[in-house]
Amino acid sequence: MAQQQVIMDNKSSLDKWEPKIIAFLCNWCSYAGADLAGTSRLQYPPNIRIIRLPCSGRVNPLFIIKALTSGADAVMVSGCHPGDCHYLAGNMYARRRFVMLKRLLATAGIEPDRVHFTWVSASEGNRFAQVVDEVVSRVKKLGPNRIAGDRDEL
């Protein structure tokens, strides 16, 4: 009921609504890519909150589920391109996990566009800005997260 209310409130102010997107970036490629996008003064929407991790292999699928059930409108994960992992194969293991997670969420009825995976290297500042653009526009189409609980652990 309360959740319905929140959605209604959000809908009525939908034009004001901006999605909150959590981005898990690997330290060696994607975080540096985001840095490059910044230093190159590339414009991209300010909807992402970046969390830096050593490797995309460090992204526990629980991080993503927890982010969604706690109210993030979407989650984005980015790491080094396959073959470029600083730890040799972290992103290769992650890739299988993400395929599984994506299907799991889809089976449970959570919109596939709430979770995005991609690869951005340290030199791809442009690509980083494009990816964020793309993710934000897709999430804006979906509207606010419907599965989040309305409370948080203290």
């Binding site: 194969a89 299988r96 993400f98 395929v99 994506k102 995005h116 991609t118 990816v131 793309e134």
Partner: peptide
């Protein structure tokens, strides 16, 4: 889940 292969498909990835 404890292994990988180079040719794994990237179903549903951005740009995959």
């Amino acid at each position: 889940m404890a292994t990988f292969s180079l040719g794994d498909r990237e179903i549903g990835f951005l740009g995959g």
